[in-house]
């Protein structure tokens, strides 16, 4: 996980058609932790949402054969159940709840040490890639993750 680059997912563990399981490790050090919080570093909740959104995004990219790009549009019922700090390995589960016309709804959760850290229902709008560079970058990273 590279927080400053918003690269939240390290590897894909499994993909079964409607759901994906990915793993990542919260970095040991980051400027993020200098502010959040001094003397008590915690992974910010917004970055946990981003991590769940990215797991959902990779799922939807795979399901759409990397032809269109999912963008986070809505977050519902987000609950942050436990603190999580630097150096912690996490497992992220994302499942497609609904395949709509130009959008999808997913349910995602993050676990660490077998304990649920957070969960949310996410809405992603699925659009044509707005830039060829983005399409190429997503397909390139998708290949690294074994999805593309």
């Amino acid at each position: 996980m590279k927080l400053e680059y918003f690269q939240m997912i390290d590897r894909v563990v499994s993909f079964d058609g409607e759901s994906i399981v990915v793993e990542s490790t919260i970095p040991d050090a980051s400027p993020v932790f200098e502010g959040h919080f001094p003397g008590y570093p915690l992974m910010p909740g917004v970055l946990l949402v981003e991590t769940m959104a990215q797991a959902s995004g990779w799922l939807l990219l795979k399901l759409g054969n990397f032809e269109r790009m999912p963008f986070l549009m809505g977050v519902k019922e987000a609950k942050f159940r436990s603190f999580i700090g630097p150096g912690t390995p996490v497992t992220v589960h994302a499942q497609r709840l609904h395949d709509g016309s130009g959008y999808a709804v997913t349910k995602a959760r993050i676990e660490a040490n077998g304990k649920r850290i957070c969960d949310a229902e996410l809405t992603l709008r699925i659009m044509d890639f707005p830039a060829p560079e983005l399409a190429a970058a997503m397909r390139g990273r998708g290949q690294e993750l074994g999805l593309a």
Binding site: M73, G74, H98, D99, G100, S101, G102, Y103, V105, T123, R125
Partner: peptide
Amino acid sequence: SLDFLDIVFAIDKAFGIKVPVEAWT
């Protein structure tokens, strides 16, 4: 557009259909 997406999702679920809102647009 964001509220409309939530509404379409709720209609999809309630009626068991997939409203082709992209094609309509």
